[in-house]
Simulated scan of single mutants.
Amino acid sequence: MTPDAEFGYELLVCRYAELAWHPSGGPRPAIVARQLGTKERRWDTVVIEVDPAAFAARRAFGERAIDSDLLHVVRHAPAEWSWYRDALPHPGYPWRYVRRAVHRAAGRDLIEKRRRNNRIQLRRKRPYPDWVDRIVAVENKPDLDRSAADRLADQLAHDVDTALADEAWLATETTGERVEPALLREMPVEAGILATDFSDGVRADAASVAWHPSDLAPAGDERRDPETETLRVEIAERAYGKGWRSYHETMRPDCRHFELRREGRSLVPHCAAKEKVPTARECSGSCPEFSPEPPQWRTRGWPIEGGPGKGFKRVLGRRRERERDRVESVE
């Protein structure tokens, strides 16, 4: 059953994308995240299509995201020892910030560093791979009325014009009619429309393509400018580190009313007190129904060592790692 809140619908779309991407182009290895983008535009769901071998090489850099400052160091670190100012391109901001990033990168074992003649030198431990094939942006709107359609049309038009992503989609609940109402709205023709049916939960066949998207990537030998390519890698890194199951970081899984409920092949948060899928704003310490886990819950052993709240986090963490392993093993 589709949750009432758009937040709940967003989680189901993320899980569907994880199970069955690409909806019209056949299976493609991909990782999925939510609520990512730029200062000008935030996407509901982000699908990063990857090269499995290069993705495995990326995982060798660790499970955490590499932020923009660290990327500048890691991507340009030389194979042989060199003074960091000679090795790295000018960042466009003071070198002292680069020096701090060098220390942070070495602290995370991303590069090697040493001091020679009172100068900081660095060299790479391994090349940073070109692991991102394509980026797909999905806007989620289960109930599409006229006002929502007008707003979404502007947002999708922005995605088409900037072409930061390679595809732009609108995901909406199917109505059962022969022609989906979304097709009648003033959506950009370049944006795809995904009609979902989560009445029986998330399944690999729980969505169909109502309108195929256009490829927004540069045609032929054309390429995006270096600044845009760097921005795409930064978005992919945030998607890698955050995923879509990180909602527990902004909610209160340590509340006695917090649950994880199965919706087909997905687990979604559920509030037993309010009997609904809560949003992060609702599931907070200021909620009138918030009730911390009793201390004795946190002293029990397996299967909820540390309390149910910590158990929920471990379950979601294991599922994220399982999906990463699956993507890496695709041949």
Rank of each mutant, 00 (worst) to 15 (best):
Met1Asp: 08
Thr2Ile: 14
Pro3Val: 06
Phe7Met: 02
Cys14Thr: 09
Arg15Ile: 05
Leu19Phe: 10
Leu19Thr: 07
Ala20Gly: 03
Gly25Gln: 15
Gly26Ala: 06
Ala33Trp: 13
Arg34Lys: 14
Arg42Met: 05
Val46Ser: 08
Asp51Glu: 15
Ala53Phe: 13
Ala60Pro: 02
Gly62Tyr: 11
Gly62Val: 08
Arg64Ala: 15
Ala65Asp: 13
Asp69Phe: 08
Leu71Ile: 03
Val73Trp: 01
Ala77Cys: 04
Pro78His: 00
Glu80Thr: 14
Glu80Tyr: 11
Glu80Ala: 14
Trp83Thr: 15
Gly92Pro: 11
Arg96Thr: 05
Arg99Cys: 11
Val102Trp: 03
His103Val: 13
Ile111Asn: 04
Ile111Asp: 00
Ile111Lys: 01
Glu112Lys: 05
Glu112Gln: 09
Arg115Pro: 01
Arg116Val: 14
Arg119Phe: 04
Leu122Gly: 06
Tyr128Gln: 00
Asp130Asn: 05
Asp133Gln: 14
Asp133Glu: 15
Ile135Glu: 02
Ala137Pro: 06
Lys141Arg: 07
Lys141Ser: 10
Asp143Thr: 10
Asp145Glu: 07
Ser147Thr: 06
Ser147Leu: 08
Ala148Met: 12
Asp150Val: 13
Arg151Ala: 15
Ala153Gln: 06
Ala153Tyr: 03
Ala157Lys: 12
Val160Met: 12
Asp161Thr: 13
Ala163Tyr: 00
Leu170Thr: 11
Thr172Gly: 02
Thr172Lys: 03
Arg178Ile: 12
Val179Glu: 14
Val179Pro: 07
Leu183Phe: 10
Val189Met: 10
Ala191Ser: 14
Ala195Gly: 11
Ala195Gln: 05
Asp197Lys: 07
Asp197Gly: 09
Phe198Lys: 01
Ala207Leu: 10
Val209Lys: 04
Pro213Phe: 01
Ser214Asn: 12
Asp215Ala: 13
Leu216Met: 06
Leu216Pro: 04
Ala217Asn: 02
Pro218Leu: 13
Pro226Gly: 07
Thr228Arg: 15
Glu229Ser: 08
Glu229Ala: 12
Leu231Ser: 15
Arg232Phe: 09
Glu234Met: 08
Ile235Asn: 04
Glu237His: 09
Arg238Ile: 06
Arg238His: 06
Tyr240Ala: 00
Lys242Phe: 03
Gly243Pro: 00
His248Ala: 06
His248Pro: 01
Glu249Thr: 12
Thr250Tyr: 11
His257Ala: 11
Leu260Lys: 03
Arg262Ile: 12
Arg262Pro: 04
Gly264Lys: 00
Arg265Gln: 15
Arg265Lys: 06
Arg265Tyr: 04
Arg265Val: 06
Leu267Met: 05
Val268Glu: 01
Val268Ser: 01
Ala273Glu: 08
Lys274Pro: 01
Thr279Arg: 04
Ala280Glu: 01
Ala280Gln: 03
Ala280Ser: 09
Cys283Phe: 02
Cys287Ala: 13
Phe290Cys: 10
Ser291His: 13
Trp297Ser: 11
Arg298Phe: 13
Ile304Glu: 08
Gly307Ser: 07
Phe312Ala: 11
Lys313Gly: 14
Lys313Pro: 09
Val315Leu: 13
Arg319Ser: 11
Glu323Gln: 14
Arg324Ser: 08
Arg326Val: 09
Val327Gln: 00
Ser329Ile: 09
Glu331Lys: 13
Glu331Trp: 11
